[in-house]
Design a protein around this nucleic acid. Structure first.
Length: 127
DNA sequence: ACTGGGGCTAACC
DNA sequence: GGGTTAGCCCCAG
């Protein structure tokens, strides 16, 4: 059964929808919340293919440190994101970053890990 | 099967 | 404070 792509994507969107107004969450945070900790890029991909007008608060998803990663490849969209966030009451710090300590969302629910069916890889790369 | 790339991250310099 | 390098995992061509 294909629980991979679509299933995960749905969970990602679901997690994003839970972000309260006026708050932001990082890709990593969303990933963890969606049950795929350590895979923030998966979130970004799911977000890119996210349906427009789906009511998905994509603007509340930011990169680590409160940076608007979207603006990097699409300045226009980045601007829109910032505008939307400010409209929700999110203030930006210097460098156009969002102070996560203040606007970062604390996920109310514990992370649920759906144990990989293959193997529990606890890859430990000593960075 | 391989390669390149993605709205990422953390460690390094 | 910023720029670069190296991992990560998955998807599309």
């Amino acid at each position: 059964m294909k629980d991979s792509a679509e299933r995960v994507r749905a969970r990602i969107w679901s997690a994003i929808r839970k972000i309260p107004r006026g708050r932001v969450a990082t890709y990593g945070q969303i990933a963890a919340l969606a049950g795929i900790p350590g895979q923030p890029r998966r979130v970004s991909q799911a977000l890119r293919s996210a349906p427009g007008g789906s009511g998905l608060p994509w603007q509340r998803v930011v990169s680590a440190g409160g940076v608007l990663g979207l603006a990097r490849y699409d300045p226009i969209a980045g601007f829109e994101q910032r505008m939307r966030l400010e409209q929700e009451g999110v203030r930006f710090g210097r460098g156009g970053r969002v102070p996560l300590a203040e606007f970062g969302w604390k996920a109310p629910n514990p992370i649920r890990r759906p144990a990989s069916k293959k193997s529990s890889r606890s890859k430990k790369s000593s960075r």
